[in-house]
Computed example of a mutant assay.
Amino acid sequence: MNFPEMFVDGDGEPIVMLAHGAGAPADSPFMNQLAGALADEGLTVLRFEFPYMRARREDGRKRPPGSQARLMEAFAGQLEQVRRQIGRDRPLFIGGKSMGGRLASMLCAEPDAAAWCRGAVCFGYPFHPPGRLDRWRTEHLSEAVVPVTILQGTRDPFGKLDEVSALEPFGPEVKVHWLEGGDHDYRTPKRQGASQQALIRQAAALAAGAMAV
């Protein structure tokens, strides 16, 4: 298979297409570790970059992500391209890190989402900006028409355990799994026995379970 401008890991039957977060590219250390862990779980992992990040790669200049509408259009375009190449029968999931996961979950709230993917997996969901409990990003979750699985660190400043638990449930299709001690990148306190790598692998295993077909 040929997936232009994509990173491809693994050779499993189900495919998961991952988008990066706002500030780091598709081959950041976190995304590399996550893709490897998901591939070890028997998945094919596709990673792509939004136009602003591809432009940064070309000239080294940092840029903001741009409008949500343009990001959604880019994600939907990549999804359509992949679905066209693999056909309608092969299991396809979407997801991503932080912003990428949020956009994936928004696509899952589109009425025709089931025609394109079987669900989403979100790694470090940005429930709200750090310290801004008045700005929740969850309204669309109640409208998800396919399963959305969120893998969240209990210390994530974008949505800690006590903050998020006070609002759950978000909708019948949404499930949040908690990773003990993890921050937004699944880093853990030194006193904790589990490492960041261990939490990434735990998140990958939970995600693979949610995507089991």
Score class of each variant (00 low, 15 high):
Ala39Asn: 01
Ala39Pro: 06
Asp40Met: 03
Glu41Phe: 04
Glu41Gly: 00
Gly42Arg: 11
Gly42His: 06
Leu43Cys: 02
Thr44Ile: 05
Leu46Gln: 11
Arg47Val: 06
Phe48Cys: 02
Glu49Ile: 10
Glu49Gln: 15
Glu49Asn: 14
Phe50Ala: 08
Pro51Thr: 14
Tyr52Asn: 03
Tyr52Ile: 04
Arg54Val: 12
Arg54Asn: 06
Ala55Gln: 14
Arg57Asp: 12
Glu58Asn: 10
Asp59Met: 09
Asp59Arg: 08
Asp59Pro: 08
Asp59Cys: 09
Gly60Pro: 08
Arg63Ser: 09
Pro64Gly: 10
Pro64Gln: 04
Pro64Phe: 06
Pro65His: 09
Pro65Glu: 00
Pro65Gly: 11
Gly66Ala: 13
Ser67Thr: 15
Ser67Leu: 09
Gln68Phe: 12
Arg70Phe: 11
Arg70Gly: 07
Leu71Ala: 13
Leu71His: 05
Glu73Gly: 13
Glu73Arg: 15
Phe75Ala: 09
Ala76Asn: 05
Ala76Glu: 13
Gly77Lys: 12
Leu79Thr: 03
Glu80Thr: 15
Arg83His: 04
Arg83Ala: 03
Arg84His: 09
Gly87Pro: 10
Gly87Leu: 05
Gly87Gln: 08
Gly87Glu: 07
Arg88Asn: 10
Arg88Cys: 06
Asp89Lys: 13
Arg90Cys: 05
Leu92Ala: 00
Leu92Trp: 02
Phe93Gly: 01
Gly95Cys: 09
Gly96Ser: 11
Gly96Ile: 05
Lys97Asp: 11
Ser98Trp: 05
Ser98Gln: 04
Arg102Asn: 00
Arg102Asp: 00
Leu103Pro: 04
Ala104Phe: 04
Met106Thr: 02
Leu107Asp: 01
Cys108Pro: 07
Cys108Arg: 05
Ala109Glu: 04
Ala109Ser: 15
Ala109Pro: 07
Glu110Gly: 01
Pro111Glu: 11
Ala113Asp: 01
Ala114Met: 07
Ala115Arg: 15
Cys117Gln: 03
Arg118Gln: 12
Val121His: 00
Cys122Gln: 09
Pro126Gln: 00
Phe127Ser: 08
Phe127Val: 02
His128Asp: 01
His128Tyr: 05
Gly131Asn: 12
Arg132Glu: 15
Leu133Thr: 14
Asp134Gly: 14
Asp134Thr: 06
Arg135Thr: 01
Arg137Tyr: 01
Thr138Asp: 13
Glu139Asn: 09
His140Trp: 09
Glu143Arg: 15
Ala144Glu: 03
Ala144Val: 05
Ala144Arg: 06
Val145Gln: 10
Val146Tyr: 04
Pro147Cys: 03
Val148Ser: 02
Thr149Asn: 13
Thr149Tyr: 15
Gln152Leu: 11
Gln152Asp: 10
Gln152Phe: 12
Thr154Ile: 12
Thr154Glu: 13
Pro157Tyr: 09
Phe158Asn: 14
Lys160His: 12
Lys160Asn: 15
Glu163Leu: 10
Val164Ala: 05
Val164Asp: 04
Val164Gly: 08
Ser165Cys: 14
Ser165Met: 15
Ala166Tyr: 12
Ala166Val: 14
Glu168Thr: 15
Pro169Val: 01
Pro169Asn: 02
Gly171Cys: 14
Gly171Val: 12
Pro172His: 07
Pro172Tyr: 00
Glu173Val: 02
Glu173Asn: 14
Val176Gly: 06
Val176Ile: 15
His177Gln: 13
